[in-house]
Design a protein around this nucleic acid. Structure first.
Lengths: 230, 230
DNA sequence: CTATGAAGTAAACATCGTCCACATAATCTA
DNA sequence: TAGATTATGTGGACGATGTTTACTTCATAG
């Protein structure tokens, strides 16, 4: 029967987006198979290119080769899609920090290791911000409470950026670089500095500052934190 | 003639927004008289309530009792309106900093004065962020380059937030608290810290942190900057 | 084999920003 | 003072977005 191949009602969303959109495989099955993922992936690409405001629900469905409303089978609305995209962005941030941390192994000098760890967190964070501005801005755009152990936010080590920072600060404490009192809530102090620089440079008044200078400032910033915390 | 009171074509935009919108004076004159200002004011109120994304051009015209397109006689588009609103927000920030700075007069101890100035800048900044989250987020949402001596951005002293910070840092330098080398670009370092805390607390993962704690962290942060810069 | 429910589709609505053509009135000039 | 000019608003339209409601398709469980 023809109706099994060419549906009576559904036109399977072909022609209308034949401008120059890539990657629209004319799906032949009625079911997409992996739509939720496809939407998040599309959204992630939009976030990469234009930040949180650029993740458009309809556009995501378009890229997935699906009707706009199909999205509503997987997300309650645009906000929820954005949430999923944000989670994806967050784990990229975590991955970047991990990469930076892995560059230094624990040696004989625990204090040196602790310092390197803290720097790695800061620079991994800033590095990602500079490398992937859109994703970074998306990751921290709208409030997902910090104490959510959402596994989607974590990279290979299973820690989110905040937890990675805590780890580095604990090393400072353990190696005697930080007093117990100063360790208290130090996450927020350290985090604020790099986050602030990142946003000032990405979507703030320092917008036109060249990346190298941002990173150079970042180095000074981390040193400042190191000295200032103690 | 009636046509001078009741225009042939124009209905003067009455009834359609009779939901519960306040402050729509049924203007009787064809000219509004001060539309540009009215639009900015309306936009500012929206920014206050919902941040940059909430400043809607059409809504502004509605509140001004005017047709949507009337806005285009004063702004090239929504972006330009937002720009004007942002400028207004920026000068509020500056005003808040000034208020904080004025609390301390220069006394016999220049170093103490310098410290107090730096703290005042930081806490004035953070205080405004906590008090007026929407305006704060709007002020620093999209990139107006930092070195714009736009008089609209300045408060009574004629300095924008960045310049006020520079002033405080100069006092640190002059009083010997800061070396010439460390003074270099210290604005960016100090700014990053408070800006970061503000954004983490407003639209970031620290969203639910109570305001008092944010300000308490702010105090520690400023101390950290003071120690870390030197 | 069928019925049930998950996944997609279609068509519509409201809202937004923006463009075009036109109307109105304040002001400038003759 | 009359007439032309020009700044300021209006109306209507277009395309895009998010979202709702009712319908269709089809995989699979019993």
């Amino acid at each position: 029967m023809l109706s099994t191949i060419i549906p009576l009602h559904g036109t399977l969303y072909f022609e209308q987006t034949m401008k120059k959109n890539v990657s629209i495989e004319k799906r032949k099955t009625f079911r997409h198979g992996d739509l939720r993922n496809a939407l998040v992936t599309a959204g992630l690409e939009m976030a990469r290119a234009g930040g949180p405001n650029a993740v458009i629900l309809r556009e995501a469905t378009r890229q997935a080769g699906v009707s706009p409303n199909a999205a509503y089978r997987h997300f309650a609305g645009q906000a929820e899609l954005l949430d999923a995209v944000r989670s994806a962005c967050l784990s990229r941030v975590a991955a970047s920090i991990e990469d930076e941390m892995k560059k230094h192994k624990a040696g004989r000098d625990p204090q040196a290791f602790a310092r390197k760890s803290l720097r790695a967190v800061g620079m991994g964070y800033l590095g990602f911000a500079v490398r992937e501005p859109g994703m970074f801005r998306t990751a921290f755009s709208v409030p997902p409470p910090v104490h959510s152990p959402d596994p989607a936010n974590t990279a290979s080590m299973g820690l989110n950026p905040f937890q990675l920072l805590s780890l580095a600060l604990d090393r400072m404490l353990d190696s005697g670089l930080l007093g117990k009192k100063d360790r208290q809530d130090a996450e927020y102090l350290a985090w604020s500095t790099v986050h602030g620089l990142a946003l000032l440079a990405l979507e703030g008044p320092l917008h036109k500052m060249p990346r190298e200078m941002v990173l150079a400032l970042g180095e000074r910033l981390v040193v400042m934190v190191e000295r200032g915390l103690g």
